[in-house]
Design a binder for these strands. Structure first.
Length: 480
RNA sequence: GGGGCUGUGGUGUAGCUUGGCUAUCAUCGAUGGUUAGGGACCAUCAGACCCCGGUUCAAAUCCGGGCAGCCCCA
């Protein structure tokens, strides 16, 4: 038994979360470590999931009128330094190219930590008139941020994949409207596909994006009790326009600075999804994002093998609207295969053996609950569809109640500390001052104001730190 | 930013305290055969001491440095 267990996950998710996470990520074939610290391989299994996220986000933003393009990986130092707050925010973790072959470069080149600088330099050339606006460009690419904290696959990597939307408008109103269109796109994809519930809100001034006027984010709760920031959208006002000289002549022939937004979703969300849905047997993938939705495991005996395989193939064809895999490998026993597919988180398994054929039935097994349904062969398609739908729905609900059940209202610093120590997220009144924000961080061992929910009650209690009148309720949590 | 733990075939490990002979066991992989409804079995084969330096007749083992992974604290 002990040896058998070693092929699967050897620790319980509740008992040792980080070990569990590492094992799930590597043993299921999602990712692997490389010789470069903090840079992982996205193996085909996780890359397929990223492609799905990409596809769903991409078609929605295109519908909103955004176009894709590609800008250089390298950013000259002088360009990066144009917006003071922006450089200051990113410079500690920029990777630099200082040499080409044996020749030292005249000017250092930053490996993009984000592309404002290089993109806006082009924008300033392209935008002359109100007729050139809006300009809405997105790119799907990789960025490098040389973190010094411990890397965690997907959740904290030095190189990661994302989209970066960079849009320019003639008026503040138009720009601000777009922020909510984009947040909706992210919400739809993350909730409906990745089955994850997040907390939407505005970032505090301390936490907003370097260079932005304000930032909205979705925050997610990990099983470890720590929060992770998900997709975000920033309204930049005219800050970058002024730094990078993005001006246009309006209809009244007056020169104006443009209004800009920036927005992104990253591969970090995959990590959140693996961590939230997985269980002691391994991954659990939401049906709508799973590269393989259904696996058919035929039970093969020598004398009935052909018959069972033939029927399995028929079922596979019948299920062509789903992504189905038929596991015909003869070198593994059925039990071994069951365990492997569970480790990989495939949502639905169909078992088909001679006994089933005799009774004209198949066994349908749902990954998250382990529930087995015996169904007549003619109903297989219907049952599979129902099972996938139910599972998708149930994973989201579970994710939502996980967040809600772990969200506490804290009226003072003692309660706040107590809840945070118990791995909870908190909703607490805050006076809006940066000093109190720093104090909270200091006193709670690093907990941050995650964001400020959009809907606020009429009155708030006293600020959890200074005791002055609270201006808003904020989400507070320890972060990854 | 500070402190701690760990590094042995692809993976998980024994050996390290007290230096010594062919580096343990399992799994994975390859080949052949028997099997098959929740991680089947037999036989054969293949595969490792993180890197650099030091101490020593002799280093997986001791010392120093590096790199990597993990944990705790700020």
């Amino acid at each position: 038994m002990a040896e058998e267990e070693k092929q699967g996950i050897t620790v319980k998710k509740d008992a040792d979360f980080s070990e569990w996470y590492t094992q799930v990520i590597t043993k299921s074939g999602l990712a692997d470590y490389t010789k470069v610290s903090g840079c992982i391989v996205f193996r085909p299994y996780s890359y397929a999931i990223w492609e799905k996220v990409k596809e769903e986000v991409d078609k929605r933003i295109k519908k909103l009128g955004v176009k894709n393009a590609y800008f250089p990986l390298f950013i000259p130092e002088s360009l990066l330094c144009k917006e003071a707050e922006h450089v200051e925010g990113f410079s500690p973790e920029v990777a630099w190219v200082i040499q080409g072959g044996d020749t030292k470069l005249n000017e250092k080149l930053a490996v993009r930590p984000t592309s404002e600088a290089i993109m806006y330099d082009s924008y300033s050339k392209w935008i002359r008139s109100w007729r050139d606006l809006p300009l809405r460009i997105n790119q799907w690419n990789n960025v490098v941020r040389w973190e010094f904290k411990h890397p965690v696959p997907f959740l904290r990597t030095r190189e990661f994949l994302w989209n970066e939307g960079h849009t320019v408008f003639a008026t503040k109103e138009e720009a601000e409207k777009e922020i909510f269109d984009i947040l909706n796109v992210y919400k739809e994809v993350v909730e409906d596909y990745m089955a994850l519930y997040g907390l939407l809100g505005k970032k505090s001034d301390r936490e907003r994006f370097a260079g932005a006027e304000y930032t909205y984010s979705f925050e997610y709760l990990m099983p470890s009790g720590k929060a992770v920031q998900g997709p975000d959208a920033h309204h930049d006002g005219q800050k970058f326009a002024k730094a990078y000289d993005i001006k246009f002549l309006n209809k009244d022939k007056k020169e104006e600075y443009a209004w800009q937004n920036t927005w992104a979703i990253t591969t970090r969300m995959l990590g959140v999804m693996f961590a939230v849905h997985g269980d002691d047997k391994g991954l659990v993938l939401p049906p709508k994002i799973a590269p393989t939705q259904v696996v058919i495991v035929p039970i093969l005996f020598d004398n009935t093998k052909d018959k069972v395989l033939r029927k399995s193939k028929e079922i596979m064809e019948e299920l062509e609207e789903f992504s189905v895999e038929l596991d015909q490998r003869e070198e593994y026993s059925p039990g071994w295969k069951f365990n492997e597919w569970e480790l990989k988180g495939v949502p639905v398994r169909i078992e088909l053996g001679p006994k089933d054929l005799d009774k004209d039935q198949a066994v349908i097994v749902r990954r998250d609950t382990g529930e087995k349904t015996v169904t007549p062969l003619k109903n297989v398609k219907k049952t599979v569809k129902e099972t996938l739908d139910k599972m998708q729905d149930s994973l989201f609900k579970k994710s939502k109640s996980f967040v809600e059940d772990n969200l506490e209202e804290a009226a003072n610093i003692d309660e706040l500390k107590k809840f945070l120590d118990n791995k909870k997220l908190c909703l607490a009144p805050w006076c809006d001052s940066g000093e109190c924000e720093d104090w909270i961080k200091d006193q709670t061992g690093g907990a941050k104001i995650l964001n400020i929910p959009l809907e606020q009650p009429k009155s708030h209690g006293k600020c959890v730190w200074c005791g002055k009148e609270g201006k808003r309720l904020v989400y507070i949590g320890k972060t990854y």
